[in-house]
């Protein structure tokens, strides 16, 4: 469990804090989406989770290790993998397998185990056929999957992703999202995904919304993402399906359920048209 209690953060030299009094518990195995407009403090928050940044006030405790305590730094970074948005800027080596091996090499594991982890991590993201490829010959989505494998090879319990799809085309975005959902389901890795695409958050177990450095909403996607007026106040766009349901209800179809899944909405509409 990652316990974030009373965390505020202020960059040195800046007057106003980026994060105010954040309280949050992240359970093992959960899929958490963190939404917020640009400048809401969500990127800063990700860097607090693995101890790249240490809170100005409050504590971040990862499975019992406080990020404030420098002696646990490596353990925390291994437990909490962090992935950035630009895949090109986080791949270290010119060969896929060497890059994925980078993390385990840093842990000082024996070569045989590194080899095992590299192969496992690459097959977990579906890139096992690209072992010897140079990353610059791959597509954006593939590169990001390699980057995910690189983090995965550390065998983290939590994976924090800072807008992992923002630099990708729709196809790459889909590839990466599916990979993350599979990881969450099959490996039980907790996923903490920062995004400003509301649609991506719909698949999460829990949604947290940050605005101006504060947690303004927390709950299931259905609870949070249907608050269309609030969402626009927070600088976010409500999901298309929610807008559709709202519009239908406004026009008298009050029995249309609120749903985020396009198939469910389609099913509900179909029922109506059959009845009439």
């Amino acid at each position: 469990m990652i316990e974030v209690s009373g965390v505020s953060f202020c960059y040195p030299g800046l007057e106003s804090p980026v994060l105010h009094d954040i309280n949050l518990e992240i359970k093992p195995g959960e899929f958490l989406a963190l939404l917020g407009r640009n400048g809401s403090g969500k990127s800063t928050f990700t860097r607090l989770l693995n101890g790249l940044l240490v809170p100005t006030d409050g504590d971040v405790i990862v499975d019992g290790y406080n990020t404030r305590d420098g002696s646990h730094r490596l353990r925390i970074r291994q437990l909490v993998g962090l992935l950035f948005s630009n895949p090109d800027n986080q791949l270290v080596a010119g060969i896929v397998e060497e890059d994925v091996a980078f993390g385990p090499e840093n842990l000082g594991l024996p070569p045989a185990e590194i080899r095992e982890r590299v192969e496992w991590a690459l097959s977990a993201v579906g890139m096992q056929d690209y072992l010897k490829h140079p990353p610059h010959m791959l597509s954006g989505g593939q590169k990001q999957r390699i980057a995910i494998a690189g983090v995965l090879a550390l065998e983290p319990s939590y994976m924090v992703l800072d807008e992992p799809t923002s630099m990708l085309d729709p196809r790459g975005r889909e590839e990466v999202l599916r990979t993350l959902m599979d990881l969450n389901r099959e490996q039980g890795t907790a996923i903490i995904m920062v995004t400003h695409f509301v649609e991506e958050a719909a698949a999460a177990d829990r949604v947290v919304i940050l605005d101006h450095g504060r947690v303004v909403a927390m709950g299931s996607p259905l609870e949070v993402l249907t608050r269309t007026d609030d969402l626009s106040d927070w600088g976010l766009e409500a999901p298309e399906m929610v807008l559709l349901c709202h519009e239908l209800r406004k026009r008298g179809y009050t029995r249309i359920p609120m749903a985020l899944d396009s198939r469910r909405v389609a099913g509900a509409i179909k029922q109506f048209s059959c009845k009439d």
């Binding site: 693995n50 790249l52 270290v92 060497e98 980078f102 090499e105 840093n106 590299v118």
Partner: peptide, 21 residues
């Protein structure tokens, strides 16, 4: 960015590092 990514992947310099090959 790369420095942050490397640090996040437990890089602390050459000491105690092993190699895949």
């Amino acid at each position: 960015d790369l420095a942050l990514a490397m640090e996040s992947r437990c890089y602390t310099g050459g000491e105690g590092r092993t190699r895949l090959h």
